[in-house]
Amino acid sequence: MVLAGLGLLLFLLPLAGLVARAPWDQVGPALIAPETATALGLSLFCSLSATAVALVLGIPLAVLLARTSGTLRAILRALTTLPMVLPPVVGGVALLLAFGRRGLVGAPLYGAFGIQIPFTTAAAVIAETFVAMPFLVIAVEAGLRALDPRYEEAARALGATGWRVFARVTLPLLRPAIFSGAVLCWARALGEFGATITFAGDLPGRTQTIPLAVYVALETRPEGAIALSLILLAVSLAILIGMRDRWLGWL
């Protein structure tokens, strides 16, 4: 009981500190400060873009995972879940080595088209997708595995070909899993720090998302950092409450 209480306190105290020490009279001005608005806008843009990319690439990946078995599946699964356990900074370094100007993919890209990815908004989106997509893949794959295969069999027996079965039956039935996966993915992308700062840098207006802005502001104007932190806290709470039916049935 005591240990459980200590565990709870570990979660609760920082939150309490954040709310208690918030300079509420300065939160308002800090919120409407132009740099806050820029970081917030960029954060929303990057995290939503990352979620969109994750949806487009992650759903097919989840289907592939759900339809394979054995060693191949183990390898694919390890690959997709690696970014979840990898320290984000390491992910950022890896991305830099792949897409950097002298990287595996980056060098030919720069040589042929003069395209340079690191330290652009695109890099921030890639970094967030890298870190957040596994959450979507895992959720959708679990949804696919829980799906009664007879729905797809019934659709096929009614004459529907592969694509029609997927679009008209499988996808709609997966909607709850896709939704919760997308929300988790978005929340993770919104909070992304390590991979972004390593791969995309900290350029206000281009790659400086809220978590980066919080980190920088903590040095110069702590009240701004607290205000931005409160925004992220509010978003996290909103997600928890919005998804409570899925995660916290009793709330």
């Binding site: 007879r150 019934a154 009614l158 070909t161 709609p172 039935l173």
Partner: peptide, 15 residues
């Protein structure tokens, strides 16, 4: 899907 075969399952399996 290309067979003229219809199946009715035990518990309907309506979409």
């Amino acid at each position: 899907e290309r067979r003229r075969v219809g199946i009715v399952f035990q518990d309907h399996v309506l979409f």
